[in-house]
Structures are given as C-alpha cells and as structure tokens.
Design a protein around this nucleic acid. Structure first.
Length: 363
DNA sequence: AAAACGGGGAT
DNA sequence: ATCCCAGTTTT
C-alpha cells in the first residue's frame, strides 16, 4: 500500500523558492548560453542540451552561434552545414528539426520566436519541457519544466518511491513543477532547479550536506536520497556485425547519404550493412552485394583495414572496415545519393563518429 | 506504454 | 562495464 503524496503547501513553496533562489545567486555557473538572453540562443542551447550533458554542449553551442548568430543565418544555411556543426553530438534529428523550425520562423513569424506556449509547442523538436524552458528563461514567462534534474529533485523532495516515468509519476511530478513555478523570475527558478540537480542533488551521490533545501527533503529524512528515483530497467543489448567499405577509385572514395527515418539520417557514410556469412568466400560476396545494393557500384573487395566497436540503441556493433577497388558502376538507379570524394573533402561533409574515425584512417 | 534515436562523461 | 545525461517523436 502506497501512501498518497500531497503537493506542498504555499508556505513550503515560498520557503523552497527563497532558499533555492539564494543558493543559485551564489552558485550559478557561468555557462555560455547565459551570456546572451535572447530566445534564439536559449532555443539553440535547449535543443543541444536534450539528453546531452552541459559540459559536452558548451563547445558545440559556441561554435554553432559563431556560425549562425541569428535565426536568419540558420534559416539560410544548408542542412549539411548544420549537421556538420552537430557532428558528434548525436540525435541528429534535433539538428534537422532545428533547421526546419528556423526556416519556418523566418518564413511565417518574421524571424521572431513566439511567446505563446502553443505556438512554441508546434515547432518541430520542441516538447513540453523545451517549450517551458525557453519561455521561462528567455521571456520570464511562468512555465514549468520537467527533465532529468527536476525529475530527480522533485522525486527526492517528495519522497516519491514509485516509477517517475510512469504515467502516474509524470502526472505527480508535472503537478509539482506547476506548483513550484513562481509568477516572476521563473527562468531563474527553472535554471536553479536544474543546476541544483546537476551539482548537488546528483544521480549517483547526492551531496545533501551542501543542499540549500535539505531540511525540506523527504528522501533525505528517510535516508533514501540515493535510492530515489528508482533506476530504470535496462534494455537488452544485441550483438551484431556490420561491414563498412572504403571503395577507392583513383584518388577518391565512395560515400553514400543516409536516408530519412533511420539512424544518422542526413549524414554521409561509407557504404555500411550487416554481415552474416562465416566463410571468407561468402563474406566476400556479401561485401560485393552490399555495396552494389546501397550504391549501384561494383567493387573488388580488399583487405580488412580495421575493426571498430560502437554502440547504438539496443545494439553493440562490431564494425569491420574493408578496403575495396572500384570495378564498374551499374546504370541501375539506386534510391540513395552517392558521392566520390577526395579524402580532403571529407571534412566538409557531416559523418557520424564512426565514419569520422574511418575517414581519419584514409588521411 | 514502449521503442527509436548517439555519443560521451563519470564512476 | 554500467549508468546517466537541461527529451521528442514514432510505433
């Protein structure tokens, strides 16, 4: 039997905000997106920060804003240039949606970032969290947020032992977020909540001794600060083997653009496909067939250059990287776009991290 | 409700 | 190795 959890009273909320705010005024980090406060830069930072740690984002954010200081610059850019700046950040759909949204804002909103929550939510790549974050931080509009940090902070404050990702958990925690958000300076409170979660109310090792709201925390009271929130069940990982083929034709190599909908959509890649055969002869045939199916190019397989490991959702991939020589090109159409590039040109095109490693072998 | 979508930081 | 990260979208 689980005890029902009541949301805090007004007095509790006032005390909580005051302690949190004072702590933040003393301890706020000097992050790159706190230099400018316009909606555009806040928006860029929030998209980059989705499922990505602050330290990782800092450099990307600065390079991105140097390349595209305004929404018009971004809207006018080529998608490949946007992806090139996103290279290594992962979740590349974010970059494509960001670019799409920028074009939409310039075309339909005069390049102005909207102030209405519904208009913001309609932009691609912006969900409830991101909309609330941008409006509160950029415009000081009182909107709640719930993400990894606030989820943990609220779960602990409330002593919520259920699954915070369940529908009941989400409902409770969003209600908490709504209760906490003040009418003014909501951006400060939201950033303070996230900063507290990152620096003090940490996932592995909560630093309750340094916490400005420790006396208000139910989890600490019960000694459960490192057991709440409940860890997620881990998904099963499948082992697979793939080949990537470096096809040479005089001084060029063959690249193929990855289609929409799948992994690494919009990025360029060496021809890559699953490898199943055990015997060398069958393996060789798989290489020829795979490259032909993907690119319409016929090859003569060569040596194994290198074997790389990488993980993606649900899969641990052993990637065998082969050399190959160009033989002929089918007149047959392939569904995908291909390019023959000089090695030096590779740096202009967006690749995934593994593709970039392979590219570095060639140089 | 669950899966897909990346890659790197921290322990 | 494992867990985690300023989530969103699709299935």
């Amino acid at each position: 039997m689980e005890k029902s959890l009541a949301l805090p009273q007004i007095a509790w909320l006032r005390l909580f905000r005051r302690r949190l705010g004072s702590w933040f005024d003393l301890h706020a980090k000097d992050l790159p997106w706190r230099k400018r406060k316009d909606a555009y830069s806040v928006w860029i930072s929030e998209i980059m920060l989705q499922q990505t740690q602050v330290a990782t984002v800092c450099g990307y954010f600065e390079r991105f804003l140097r390349a595209f200081p305004t929404v018009d610059n971004l809207a006018q850019a080529e998608e490949e240039q946007v992806l090139r700046l996103w290279e290594g950040l992962g979740y590349y759909r974010r970059a494509r949606q960001l670019h799409k949204a920028a074009k939409f804002l310039v075309a339909e909103h005069g390049g102005e970032f909207p102030r209405e929550i519904d208009a913001v939510r309609r932009l691609p790549g912006i969900g409830r969290y991101t909309a609330g974050a941008i409006l509160s931080i950029a415009y000081d509009i009182p909107q709640p947020i719930l993400e990894a940090n606030t989820l943990r902070v609220y779960s602990r404050l409330l002593g919520y032992e259920g699954d915070p990702h369940s529908s009941a958990g989400q409902k409770l925690l969003w209600s908490m977020a709504e209760a906490v958000i003040p009418k003014t300076r909501s951006g400060r409170v939201n950033q303070a909540l996230m900063e507290l979660g990152r620096e003090v109310c940490k996932a592995r090792n909560a630093l309750c001794d340094n916490c400005p709201v420790a006396p208000l925390c139910k989890a600490l009271e019960k000694g459960l600060q490192n057991r709440i929130p409940r860890p997620k069940a881990k998904p099963k990982i499948e082992e697979v083997c793939e080949a990537a083929v470096v096809v040479r034709r005089r001084s060029r190599v063959l690249l193929v653009k990855r289609g929409d909908g799948g992994r690494w959509a919009g990025l360029w890649d060496f021809p890559r496909f699953p490898l199943n055969a055990e015997h060398p002869a069958a393996r060789r045939k798989e290489l020829i067939d795979g490259v032909r199916r993907l690119t319409g190019v016929t090859i003569a397989p060569g040596e194994l250059l290198q074997t790389l490991q990488h993980s993606v959702t649900r899969f641990r991939i052993t990637l065998e990287c082969y050399a190959a020589e160009y033989v002929s090109e089918d007149g047959r159409k392939t569904s995908s776009e291909i390019k023959w590039l000089r090695p030096a040109e590779l740096e202009k095109y967006p690749l995934n991290t593994t593709g970039r490693k392979i590219a570095s072998i060639i140089l």
